[in-house]
Amino acid sequence: MRHTISVTVENRFGVLSRVAGLFSGRGFNIESLCVGATVDPEVSRMTIVTRGDDRITEQVTKQLRKLVDVIKVADLTETSFVDREILLAKISATEKNKAEILRINEIFRGRIVDISPNTYTFEITGDEGKIDAFMKLIRPFGVKEIVRSGKIAVSREM
């Protein structure tokens, strides 16, 4: 099962390697990991997506809590949460298919962030399902490059 884990950590060097090392040292794969500062500049938030059965995930969260630089760990999968990802996609465009590419982008409420004679670069924000759907539709036009941010997530207020 897939788990989205939110980890609040001290914003210090070396913290990322401690967290990442915990996963690799136990043979757990990280599907995506995002880090950014929070309102408190001394604290960062990591959103980690990992796959494993409940026992493995429980062990991971316990091990994360043991790290001295980790302030809080929450397995969001157990609660209701909102997640978002950003996709930057550089797509080949020709005179013929331009209109259709732009139409797909519009349907997905994407933004054009760069443009060249033969390419558009789109910025799409959404949950994973939306990003995947966009990718599926746009791929036949010729993907030059894509970058996905990985997931960030926050729990819903009840």
């Binding site: 026992r55 316990k62 809590r65 043991k66």
Partner: peptide
């Protein structure tokens, strides 16, 4: 004392 030792 170590929660991670439980059910490991």
């Amino acid at each position: 004392i170590d929660p991670s030792a439980i059910s490991k």
